[in-house]
């Protein structure tokens, strides 16, 4: 036996909740397969509603610190995430290629686009206030100032088709504006999202600001949509029927809801995803004498 073959080391993919990497509390996993050949890639944790509940608790706990951080600081932290992502480029190219059945060059382009998208949103953290806020002219001796404030805990259903670029495109705007996120990764291709948790953990993002769950989208989205401590819901990754029932459930405590629509992840995203998770606070202040 001349060539000693190494035993392969398989990766145990785990959830990312509260800055830690737990298994699902239910102990369940499901098989993730190659989108082309259908060959087995890995077992991903199949999170339960209790994992979703724990993620919301973690996100709520992190909200005060994250929303209270200066926009400049958030921008720096997000840029750091892009640096970490760039450093793991090779791993993500492989995972995206397997997950979406892309050629190596196309997967590489998707990962590059994801890094660029993240940097783009990182730049927005301290600029969005100038775009959507401002001083309003009023008929009286007052300053009237509108400032955008983060909504709170946002539950995000990541797009089903684009496992990394799509995830980045929906997640970055949520945390760029100071909200915290509970993300349900693409059901069929969760592995890049779960690895992205490792990127977040090794950058300076405080634990709980982003929580990533994998599993059955419908099973996880239902308790999140009705959860009284979730402030907003991004339905990008929901099917039409599911989106309808979730929106009904979300109406109970007046969550902000962003409906699903056909998306092209390669085009300029604009600021609509940033402004979706902002509340405008307007204050009147007497002009001093």
């Amino acid at each position: 036996m001349s060539e000693q073959s190494r035993l392969s080391v398989f990766k145990t993919y785990k959830l990312y909740v509260g800055g830690k990497f737990p298994r699902s509390e239910s102990g369940r996993v499901y098989e993730v397969t190659d989108s082309k050949g259908g060959s087995w890639l890995a077992n991903a944790p199949q999170a339960s509603r209790k994992d979703a509940r724990d993620a919301v608790v973690a996100a709520r706990k992190a909200f005060g610190g994250w929303s209270g951080a200066t926009a400049y600081n958030r921008g720096q932290v997000l840029y750091r995430v892009a640096e970490m992502l760039e450093g793991r480029r090779e791993q993500f190219v492989r995972e995206v290629a397997e997950a979406e059945g892309l050629s190596k060059s196309k997967a590489g382009a998707a990962v590059d686009a994801a890094v660029d998208r993240w940097v783009w949103y990182a730049g927005w953290t301290d600029k969005i206030a100038q775009v959507v806020g401002g001083a309003n002219p009023v008929a009286g001796p007052y300053f009237n100032l509108s400032t955008p404030e983060p909504t709170g805990v946002v539950a995000v259903l990541a797009p089903q088709d684009s496992s990394l670029l799509g995830l980045v495109s929906v997640l970055a705007p949520v945390i760029a504006t100071g909200s915290t996120a509970v993300v349900v990764a693409s059901e069929a291709a969760p592995l890049p999202a779960l690895s992205f948790g490792e990127v977040l953990a090794t950058s300076d993002v405080p634990g709980g600001v982003v929580n990533i769950l994998s599993g059955r989208t419908a099973e996880l989205a239902t308790p999140l949509a009705s959860h009284q401590d979730v402030n907003a819901l991004d339905l990008t990754g929901a099917s039409v029927d599911l989106a309808r029932t979730l929106e009904e459930a979300a109406a109970d405590n007046l969550k902000r809801v962003r409906r699903p629509a056909p998306e092209d992840w390669s085009t300029d995203p604009g600021t609509s995803r940033l402004t979706a998770w902002l509340e405008t606070k307007t204050v009147w202040h007497p002009i001093g004498v």
Binding site: R53, R60, S226, H227, Q228, D229, D252
Partner: peptide, 14 residues
């Protein structure tokens, strides 16, 4: 208790 009676997870706002 609210979770048990409504089926929805409650939060500290309530």
């Amino acid at each position: 208790r609210q979770k048990l009676s409504t089926g929805r997870y409650s939060g500290p706002d309530y």
